[in-house]
Structures are given as C-alpha cells and as structure tokens.
C-alpha cells in the first residue's frame, strides 16, 4: 500500500492512515449491522449506518491524498481501482439505505464484501511513479472509468439483496429483516440500475476505442465478457418480465451475473490476452 516517492512521502503516509481508519470504521459498522440483523434492533442498524457514513470521510481523504501524491486519478493501478470501487459501493449503499431505513440490514452482506476489496489491496503490488498511457484521455475515457464505480455499487446492492433473500428463505419469518418480496424487488431494481450503468461503461468504452483506434468494437476478450455480463443482466430482466422469474431463481441468476462481472473485471485480464490487460488486475 505504501509507495516510496520521496517528494510525496507525507501524503502517502496520510493515505495509508486514512485508509486503515476507514477500514476500521467499516469493520465496526459491519458488526453493528450483523447485531442489528440478529437482534432485530433498529438502533444497531442506525449506528451501523452512521459508522459507515463516518468511514466515508477518511476514505475520501485517503483517495484524495493519493491522487495528489501520484498525480493521477484512482483508475490506473490495481489497488487504487479496488479502493475506488469500494468507495462507490459504500456511497451508493448510503444513498440507498438513507431513504429506506429498513433495508439497512443489507449492509450485513455488503460491507464484508467491500472490506474484501479494501483488504485485497494489501496483497497487490504497488509500483511507484506509474504514469497514464497516451490513450488515457478524453471525455469518453473519463465516462468509461467513472461509470464502472456506481455500476459495481448497484451490483453489490443487488447481490447483497439476493444473498439475504436466499439466506432468509430457509428460515421462518422473523420480522427482523425486510420481507422476501421487498428483497426481491431490491434485487430487481438494482439489477436494472447495474444494467444501465454497465451499458454506459460499454458504450463509453466503445466510443473511446473509436476515438483512439478507429474501431469501436474489436471483439477483445474483455469486451466480449463485458457484453456477456450485460446480456446476462438483460436475460435476467427479460426472464423476470416474461417468465415470471422471481425470488430464488432470480436471486441465483443474480449471483451468476455478479460472479461473471467479477471474473470480467479482475481475473480474465490475467488469463487471456487483451488490450485491457495492462490496465486491469
């Protein structure tokens, strides 16, 4: 995590301190969410919500300090990408759960997932002084790398709803959690949201490619798998609309969509030759 650029040493130390402060607050929030879910106490869920919101402050500081230190946005190296994806996910969760307090229990699944992202940074090599390649400029590039952040946020909320649905389905109704139909509707709504944002990411990427290489679609493996993820989301939405796929089946399909999105973003670039290879994990 700590890079060694002498001129920006202080900023990078600040980044590391703020990062781990944010992780501690998110970890505490997870505990409260879990307690709230087990006991049915809304006060615990409320504390969890406010701790998560408090964690966003050092997280913002960490991202900002790092931006200043390395001279580019958090889109170039693997560790900073993970951090900004976690940031976007938490931001979206706060927006989502501020409106409907009953749905804060979703944080029980969502926050540990985000913490995995933030802790994974520890195990990734961080190289000092990496600079953006020549193609990394323009409005389409900015939209391309920005839209993935809320897209992953929407994916995380949808998958968290699905996992809670599958977990709760096997238990007698306790009244502590949101009802099954509400969780199912959350899954549907955020799958739709992820569909839009993932679509924007693909579209902006295609426009950027057209601007850079004169070809908006090259059937590159990462492009293909992004398309597959988007088609799978489209399939999920069509199955819900036409075939009445709801509840358990829809939740499992969401799990598949999420797994493929993670595979596309983090693992395929390592396994296949791709023009995205040098930019992704």
């Amino acid at each position: 995590m700590i890079l060694t650029i002498p001129d920006h040493r202080h900023l990078l130390i600040l980044t590391a301190v703020a990062h781990w402060l944010a992780v501690s607050l998110y970890l505490s929030a997870s505990g409260f969410f879990f307690h709230g879910l087990r006991s049915g106490k809304t006060k615990s869920l409320k504390i969890g919500f406010w701790l998560t919101a408090a964690g966003m402050l050092p997280h913002t500081l960490a991202l900002g300090a790092r931006w200043l230190a390395v001279g580019h946005g958090p889109y170039l190296q693997k560790d900073e990408s993970l951090s900004v994806l976690a940031y976007g996910t938490i931001g979206m969760f706060l927006l989502f759960s501020a409106k409907s307090a009953r749905l804060r229990g979703i944080g029980t699944v969502l926050l540990p997932g985000v913490l995995i992202f933030m802790t994974a940074q520890l195990f990734l090599p961080a190289e000092a002084g990496i600079r953006p390649p020549a193609t990394f400029n323009g409005i389409w590039f900015a939209i391309h790398v920005t839209s993935i952040i809320p897209a992953m946020g929407a994916f995380f909320i949808a998958i968290s709803s699905s996992i809670l649905y599958l977990w709760q389905e096997k238990r007698p109704p306790s009244g502590k959690l949101p009802s099954l139909p509400v969780l199912d509707a959350c899954n549907y709504k955020y799958a739709g949201f992820a569909f839009i944002l993932w679509g924007i990411m693909i579209v902006a990427g295609a426009a950027w490619a057209e601007q850079s290489w004169g070809s908006y679609w090259s059937w590159d493996p990462i492009e293909n798998w992004s398309l597959i993820t988007w088609l799978l989301l489209g399939l999920l939405l069509h199955l819900r609309r036409f075939h009445g796929w709801q509840g358990k089946k829809a939740a499992w399909l969401m799990v598949a969509c999420f797994s493929i999105s993670i595979l596309t973003l983090f693992f395929l670039p390592v396994l296949t030759g791709s023009i995205h290879k040098e930019y992704l994990l």
Binding site: W219, P221, N224, L231, L235, H243
Partner: peptide, 17 residues
C-alpha cells in the same frame, strides 16, 4: 425466441473468447 436469441449472442461472444 427473445431469450434464445440473447443466449445465442452470449454464447457467440463466449466462443469468440
């Protein structure tokens, strides 16, 4: 038909990889 076409498109992309 619609679902089959979406699936076929996905399968084609998969094979291309």
């Amino acid at each position: 038909t619609i679902i089959t076409l979406i699936t076929a498109m996905g399968a084609a992309s998969l094979m291309g990889t």
